[in-house]
Nucleic acid binder design. Structure first.
Length: 192
DNA sequence: GAAGGTCAAGCGCA
DNA sequence: CTGCGCTTGACCTT
């Protein structure tokens, strides 16, 4: 029995649970702790990409880890995070990918997660930490009605595998002054 | 190996 | 202010 029921909003529905959002997945102190440990402990990578006749920065930092073989004294909070994620979205997660949006100029274009990173029928779980940022979600087939969700500090967004075929999502830039925001996406990747 | 999709910044526009 | 759709090109997937 759960002592506290975390409120959930279903943003999109489909046969696999659609897209579900828990704004207060963990308390602020836990989220603060996770944010600091991931920010300081992860190996953040900066990437470049061609755009017309020049090379530009990919507008965010990235890091990724396999979840097997993590040493017990790993300073990263993945084990704690997995326990919490499993409560609401149980799946055999094997990998975590992280994005660090340093300020409002950082962003990610509308996209869907690469299907080879996912296993059919299994969800992905996105933990948001730090400054809230708006995520836009819209159907692939019809861009007219989009859903915006403010991804809060310590929130969880769970997206079904099916939703990655039907919908795309992104984090637009914003002119508002905003602090850093981090996402940690847990995926059940098929074996290589 | 050919073909198609992705996704970076900036622009005009709604 | 904000989002959309267009643009090129290197890289990736099919």
């Amino acid at each position: 029995m759960e002592l506290f029921e975390s409120p959930m909003t279903r943003l999109i529905d489909d046969a696999e649970g659609g897209i579900r959002y828990w704004p207060s997945f963990v308390d602020a102190a836990t989220a603060d702790d996770w944010f600091a440990r991931l920010r300081d402990g992860a190996t953040w990578k900066s990437q470049r990409r061609m755009m017309y006749d020049r090379e530009v920065d990919v507008p965010r930092l990235t890091a990724s880890y396999w979840l097997d073989g993590l040493s017990p004294d790993c300073p990263m909070p993945f084990a704690d995070m997995l326990v919490q994620v499993h409560d609401l979205a149980p799946a055999p997660y094997t990998a975590v990918g992280m994005n660090l949006y340093r300020d409002g100029r950082d962003s990610v274009a509308m996209h869907h997660d690469k299907l080879r990173m996912l296993t059919p029928g299994l969800p992905l779980a996105l933990v948001s930490l730090g400054n809230p940022r708006r995520m836009r979600i819209r159907a692939q087939a019809d861009h007219r009605d989009a859903i915006d969700v403010e991804l809060a500090h310590g929130s969880l967004l769970v997206m079904s595998h099916a939703s990655q075929l039907s919908h795309e999502h992104g984090i637009p830039k914003t002119a508002r002054p905003v602090g850093p925001r981090m996402s940690a996406v847990f995926r059940a990747r098929p074996p290589r």
